[in-house]
Write a protein that binds this DNA or RNA. Sequence first.
DNA 1: TCGAACTTTCGAAGCGCTTCAACACTGAGA
DNA 2: TCTCAGTGTTGAAGCGCTTCGAAAGTTCGA
Lengths: 329, 329
Amino acid sequence: MVTIADVAQAAGVSISTVSYVMSGKRAISQETRTRVEKAIDSLGFSPHAGARSLASRSTNVIGLQAPLRTGVDVHVVMQIVTGVVTQARKHGYDILLLASDDAKALQRAAKGSMVDALLVMDVESDDPRIETLSGLGHPSVLIGLPEGRRAIPCVDFDFEAAGWLAVDRLVALGHRRLALIGSPPEVMTRHTSYADRLVRGFLAACEASGVTGSVHACPSTTEAVATVDAVMTENPDITGFFVHNEGALPHVAATIGRSARQRGDDLAVLALCPDDVARSVPGLADSIAVPAEGIGAAATDMICEILANGSQPAVRLLPPALTGTPTAP
Amino acid sequence: MVTIADVAQAAGVSISTVSYVMSGKRAISQETRTRVEKAIDSLGFSPHAGARSLASRSTNVIGLQAPLRTGVDVHVVMQIVTGVVTQARKHGYDILLLASDDAKALQRAAKGSMVDALLVMDVESDDPRIETLSGLGHPSVLIGLPEGRRAIPCVDFDFEAAGWLAVDRLVALGHRRLALIGSPPEVMTRHTSYADRLVRGFLAACEASGVTGSVHACPSTTEAVATVDAVMTENPDITGFFVHNEGALPHVAATIGRSARQRGDDLAVLALCPDDVARSVPGLADSIAVPAEGIGAAATDMICEILANGSQPAVRLLPPALTGTPTAP
DNA sequence: TCGAACTTTCGAAGCGCTTCAACACTGAGA
DNA sequence: TCTCAGTGTTGAAGCGCTTCGAAAGTTCGA
């Protein structure tokens, strides 16, 4: 193993000089710097992470607690994680993936000085982890938006604004009777934060625009077909569909497309999902992108800024944007 | 921060005694052990990971290079990662998630002494990372089965055996004309290792059983419907379908189910996918489970064993198993 | 010419832990 | 009684790095 001492010797300088060249924390003459850098390169030196963290009391590692279970939104989770990992690396941080999603795992990582900060996904409203985080003495950021006291910085997508945007879009296309085809029943009744916020925005926007909107839970399997068929049969006047359900999306789009052809009606489907998921569903006119990777990146930026400047807790919601799938010319 | 010295003082013993109590590397009297353990608990001590790795020259961290991009098999990737993380914890290891999927990332982690070993997913046949790994001096395990020289231990699902098993099952059900509805065309033509192995097993088994089998690439979007329709129209004698395409599965199952009802034929769909994915698709008779979490766990076990006993490189393929979805009584 | 004020480099003291050699006991066998 | 083997515990030497205080060298104005 190559150590800093080897580099120092090879460059003919002291150990501390090498250290200062690497960290840039003190002025080093151009000539010495070059000599040291050459030695580092030619020896292939990279500093021992443990030694570094012991001496500097910081690890350059961020702990990430992600919901790894296969769920409705694997794509979203995956993309958020990608965003976190990629952005972290840009800031010079690595990501330690925590095994379980309980408070203990957070404590273990923090108290063992394995990480400088913590990033927590999939937070529930009265999540016990929030209190743990507060008492940990490590900076942390939540990906999600719990209700109640906001003691910890949060980053999320602005689902409420997405509801408004969807209605505006469908109304602009001429639709006066809208339906939100949403999450599976269990997510709806659990009043999961993001589902609630989307419904709230959707209904408020419908009212503000003077159109009628209804909300329908929808399973994310093939059964979505039956659900949508039923919705259309019971409400034949619905012409604008806003779909937020990754698993159901292809079925819903296909069913509505078929129905539109049969009835000769102008039915619109507006999806809320990651951009590339939307693109993989044929016959989808346009969509509102969930910038999943952007959420991960934003959360990482926030925690890095806290780490660097010790800035204050804050909430950051990423705005929704329409992504018209380019139509054939 | 509580250090080992604080614990030693509280327990009235020396620092080294505390260390030996924790590691169990030397005999400690029951009385002393109890006293030390009490002190550890009451002070809430957990050893500084960096200091530990500096002194012991091992980190208890395994680096994991996972393909985070959203792809065909997000569920599978997710479950493998879950398996790795969970199993690693059982062995006392944590997981460092590597940012990019190039060789540099592996080097960075290894040479910076951030990890004790490396786990690499999504390996191609002539992957440049394999050579990098060989020269790294860190144990490593591949999740996948590259062709050619096998210098590094590998763990994967036995796709070839799955092909055989599928044919046996469909033939046992009385089908004499089988079709493999496989990966998307791009995966097929790229001759991705797992797709090739599955086809090989499937065709060999068909021949051995004296039945006719054909292989069909299939997009993993709604377009799968058209593909399957075409296959059925061109080969009306096919009655046994073996589907290995996560995204297409619900469409394929629905299309074939519909057709079976229309034609009054006994058509069988046998899927190859994670168990829970199979369960979420309605109307699926039975399936062969891809034990994705098991693959992750097995790879982790292997690397931990190498770490512990320095055992030799090996290939381990997890056997396929039928998972009959329980039918209504 | 002298000292003040920089600039550049260095020596050494840790950071918190593991581990080795060695020490202090105890009890058994000679 | 003395020795020897075993058991339980300790002191101290690092592990490789960061960082502080200070030394050495340079420049500049008085």
